[in-house]
Structures are given as C-alpha cells and as structure tokens.
Amino acid sequence: MSKPTTTSGWSRRTVLSMAAGTAAAGVVGVRGARAAWPTDPITVIVPYAPGSTDQLVRILGQQMEKILGKPVVVETKPGAGGSVGATYVAKNAKPDGHTLLFAVTSVLTVAPHQNKLPYGFADLRGVAQVTTGPNMMGAYPGAPFKDLTSLVAYAKANPDKVSYGSAGTGGATHLAGAAFARAAGIKLNHIPFQGVTPAVTATVGGTVDLALGFAQAIWPQVQGKRLTAIAQFGATRAKVIPDVPTFRDAGIDLVMPPRVGFLAPARTPDDVVAKIADAARQASAAPEFVDFAKRALAEVEFSGPEAFQRDLVAEDKFYLDLLRDLGMAK
C-alpha cells in the first residue's frame, strides 16, 4: 500500500484532521458568542413583603429589560427580616448572574452578625448600589426640643428620658437610634414596635419622643406638621429632603445611609457582574425610574461593583462594632 502524500513533511491525513479541528473550534467560538450573558430571564429576589422595595426594582427592571434584551422577573421571598430571600440567593442560586438579590444591605452587614444563618458576608458580593434611603428622624411636636442641638442638650441633662420608637429590637431603626446615642454621647430609651408605622403613629400621638425610618414614612408626617424633622442619616443632604440637616451638620460624626441595590452569589464572574452593573447604571438614570424614585422619596445614588463592595466592607465592620457594644452580636 502506498503512503499518504505529504506536504512539507505533514501527512495529508494530519492536514485534514487539523482542518476539521479548526472548523470545530470555529463552531464552538460562534456558539460561545451566542451564549454570552444573559442567556435566560433574570430573576430578582426581593426579600420583603410586597411594598416599596419591589415596586422600585420592578420599574428599574423594565428599563434593564430594554438594555439586556431578556425579561427581568421580580419575586418576593419575605421572612426573617430579609434573611429568607438572602439565603435563597446566597445558597441556592447558580452564580451565573441570572438570579440576583435586591435588598437593603443590612441583610448582609447586620443579620449574619445577630443570628446563626445559613449565609454570611462572604457568600454574597456587591453588584450595584441604586439608592440610599434616605433615613431620617422625626420628633413629637410637643417634645421639649425642636432640633438636633436642643435634643442632644436635653438628653444629656435628662438621661434615658428621651424615648424613640423602632420597628423592633435588633432591626435597622433600633440600631440607628443606638448609633445616634453612641455618637452623641447620650442615653435614649428604646421602645420597640411591630413595624415602622406603629412607631410613627406612637410618636405622632406623643407616646414616644422620636421615630426613625425611611423618609417615605416620616416626611409626610413632617409636611402635615404632625412631626418635627430632626435629622437625616446620609453623608450629605438628600435631594428629596434638602431642608433636613444631617447629623454632621450639627457636629455629630454619624453617617448611616441605608443602601439599596443588587447583590449576587459570591462566585458570580466579574464580567457578568460588570454587565449587570452597567445595565443598572443606565436604567437608574432613565427618566421613568428617576421620577418614580422621587415620588417614593428614594435618593438615586448609583455606585458600581468596586465602590459598592468597599462600602459593604466598611458597613459590615461598623455594624459588628456597634452590635458588640450593644451586646447583641452572636
């Protein structure tokens, strides 16, 4: 039998095999390009009962669909202060960018320090911050103080006499009040309620002196002259409540903006996270979303993966220190 002809020392069979391999690689390359993220609908888990947070991300998701070319489906999984939904994303979702968490960052920076949970800080990563509250403090109009300076002076002269209502022990509003007291060097009497609304109602009625919460819970009462605006928790004055001073305006070094945004399983690839963040950035600047956020008294303040993750690390450290001071760390 004659040998296969050769070209420059390569057999014809080898050349044909290499050509076939190159063709196959080309098919894989084309398929890889077609499979670029996203390949499926994006599911966004909101770990709270239906209300303001899921409405916010539904409007945002409508804009993201236009950018990504895939449906954005919002599901609510409430329970245990947000940890049920957070657990689902951290432990059950594939780290491929198709299942995300949209929540207040306390589900990651507070809850795991308080209770033994299936997930911890290392199980989720920051993708994109979209809004920052704002949170604010309002006072009963009949209280013996009308602003932050007179509140601190009165509280120092009357330890434990000033009371504040929260949405429950260990929750965000409880910790905000405790952080304020620590930063101002005063003592406050904490009164827990079953939610922000009952706490605000009690403050309007004079049962307690102070109420804390998102601006959407406090600001309408201020506008109706049923509460007095005392301070907001951001580093700067939010555009939606520009006349309310920050704690720093009164010389109190306290910044606790409630960050709201997208989180993903920790092993989600960087390039996918970058694509999600870019879509969120564009969507958060859309007039439809900006108008909705303004009506909801939510401050649009976008930050990408690196900046958001840095803020999460700092926030996690802050809350762990505060919880240890309060004897509430697990």
Rank of each mutant, 00 (worst) to 15 (best):
T5I: 09
T7S: 08
L16E: 15
A20N: 05
T22H: 02
A24T: 10
G26V: 06
V27T: 08
A35Y: 04
P38W: 04
T39Q: 11
T39G: 05
P41L: 00
P41E: 11
P41T: 08
V44L: 02
Q55Y: 03
L56T: 15
V57R: 04
Q63G: 14
E65C: 04
G69N: 11
V72Q: 05
G79Q: 05
G81T: 01
S83M: 01
T87Q: 12
Y88K: 08
Y88S: 05
V89W: 03
A93L: 08
P95I: 03
P95A: 09
D96T: 09
D96V: 06
G97Q: 04
L100A: 11
F102T: 09
V107G: 02
L108M: 14
A111P: 03
H113R: 11
K116M: 10
A122Y: 04
R125K: 14
A128T: 02
N135T: 12
M136V: 12
A139N: 13
Y140S: 13
Y140Q: 11
A143I: 10
P144E: 13
P144F: 06
F145S: 13
S150I: 07
V152H: 02
K156M: 00
N158I: 04
D160Y: 12
D160S: 15
K161V: 10
S163Y: 08
T169G: 01
G171A: 03
T173R: 03
A176V: 12
G177K: 13
A179R: 13
R182C: 00
N189I: 05
P192L: 08
Q194M: 06
V196M: 02
P198V: 00
T201V: 04
V204S: 09
V204H: 04
L212D: 03
A217L: 10
Q221K: 11
V222F: 02
G224K: 13
G224F: 01
R226S: 14
L227R: 11
T228D: 10
Q232C: 07
Q232Y: 04
Q232M: 06
F233P: 06
F233N: 12
F233D: 05
G234P: 01
A235P: 07
A238T: 07
K239Y: 06
T246I: 09
D249I: 08
L254G: 12
R259V: 14
V260S: 09
L263T: 10
L263G: 10
A266N: 08
A266E: 09
T268V: 07
V272K: 12
A274C: 02
K275V: 07
A277D: 04
D278F: 02
A285Y: 03
F289N: 05
V290E: 11
K294P: 00
R295N: 14
F302W: 15
F302S: 10
G304K: 06
P305Q: 01
F308G: 07
Q309F: 05
D311Y: 03
D311K: 15
V313M: 05
K317P: 00
Y319S: 06
L323K: 08
G327R: 07
